[in-house]
Write a protein that binds this DNA or RNA. Sequence first.
RNA 1: CGGGGCGUAGCGCAGUCUGGUAGCGCACUACACUGGGGGUGUAGUGGUCGUCGGUUCAAAUCCGGCCGCCCCGACCA
Length: 586
Amino acid sequence: MRASQFLIATQKETPADAEVISHQLMLRSGMIRKLAAGLYSWLPMGLRVLRKAEAIVREEMNRAGVQEVLMPVTQPAELWEESGRWEQYGPELLRIKDRHGRSFCLGPTHEEVITDLVRNELRSYKQLPASFYQIQTKFRDEIRPRFGIMRSREFLMKDAYSFHISQESLQQTYEVMYQAYSAIFQRMGLDFRPVLADTGSIGGSHSHEFHVLAESGEDDIAFSTESDFAANIEMAEAVAPTGERPAAKEQVKDVETPNQHSIEEVSQFLGMEKSNVAKTLIVLAEPEDEEASDPSQLIALVLRGDHELNDIKTEKLRGVASPLTFASEEQVKQQLGCNVGSLGPVGLNIPIIVDRSAAHLADFACGANKEGVHLTGVNWERDCPLARVEDIRNVLAGDLSPDGKGVLEIKRGIEVGHIFQLGSKYSEAMNARVLNEEGREQVMLMGCYGIGVSRVVASAIEQNNDDNGILWPNALAPFQVALIPINMHKSEQVRETCEKLYAELLESGVDVLFMDQEKARLGGMLADVELIGLPHRIVVGDRGLEKGVVEYRNRRETENQDIPLAELHEFLKRFLNEPLNERMLS
RNA sequence: CGGGGCGUAGCGCAGUCUGGUAGCGCACUACACUGGGGGUGUAGUGGUCGUCGGUUCAAAUCCGGCCGCCCCGACCA
């Protein structure tokens, strides 16, 4: 590509509304432009990157035996009513009406459409397993779009769905997808981790997320230092402390604690570690039966003062309302007779769930359920019953790994992929059956597998940048090589050499950007090429040509290398010989 | 939706408190010089100051409504 025929829309200054580095650099390097909140146009430079990411995903999906389809963005409400999600999905689902008043939505995902398609097309177990994917624009009316392309309302997603006659078959495909995902992110040159995950609103049982590790990530991931255990912090099990609970040494004492409410305040006031103060949270209970639903039923949760409640784990517990809802201050005051800051498990007349670690405390402090008073020297069993012990806290760095090997470490991650074993959730609701070997109708089992293709692009930048701009991994770079002439308008020699090199590089399938603008200044071109992040650059000038060389520099290095013209081709081959997709783009 | 902030040229900003000719830097156009890391000079282009209404002789500036955008929380590829 010739720069003179290609929009290079770089900017010197960082737009004020871009917070994270990937957003800033995508705007500055002229990859994207904002249309409205969470809606972005892809400029030619950015689109090339997006297409490269797409091509890698497509290749690996095809390799894994998944068939490409393309489904409509606009979907009829009826399908969503069938699956129950028209009600369930909430305001993130953009609902629209056509001119006849019929209801539709813009697809945030395509389980309904693919299930409808497959139930009509597949009749026999002999056609299974079958997997389909598409790469397509999704719409989710995010409450708060942010970080540019990272969390936008319209985004490009690869979504795949698999159909099975048995759990074993589903398991197998899940495994294949897991491997394909690993291959995809590896080829893109990303530092990523597959982690155990919650299934969230999509539903189903078994699930992994693929995270690109980056400080700006929105998720916390827990890793073992010794094994390959990795889980989203939402899911990571906090193992029970080992050994017996220490024996009680102290007697219960009332201590006046005027105006001391938070764990911080109380522990300081009492001169105790936060870890030896129990914190008591009050949440709503699950109505026992729907008719007699009494929204005022409460449950107490007890944690160590230095631990944080994990709402995902907690709301899955029997008896706890899902989604997890905290009782209001008035509710607590009215039913328990004291302020939120003075609660404790002793003498509390509602069900109590105690965290595993909190259950291991001895001689601890807690609220006395009386304003301005706390108890010290409290012990389970002796002073209050230890009826129900569960895992309800977030793991902390340094906790034991649930698989017994090593301790946990916590890092931030950007979720770029998610795979689920859905089971029969959609096929059951939408009656997607095939005949089995016995000639009987059987509901198919499903898996679903997503990759945020546009998000991958942003996360690659989060991981690869420096003060001068982006450092694209080879596989995602919009161009592999920048060809930069010095004073081409003055030197016939430079012009001829560049034209010749350009033609040769194109000929050998190298994605090259020829900075051929008349009179463009060297400094400007170098700055642009660095900002855009092209991995390799060749500078051609009279000085070098006198000696028969051109200059090469890798974007990740700071030194130039003189390469004899005659050897350039061989030289470039060495690092361009990776599985690239230049040809798909030309 | 709750809390905080911002809307003045394509981008970054000043001007608003204290009402009186709409400014600066970058970018862009033309010409000249310059020519190995965003060069210099001269001359230019570009803004109904988010929007609607009010106060006033006079509003970017004061008052009110609306709209948009960004940040912090719940959601997710």
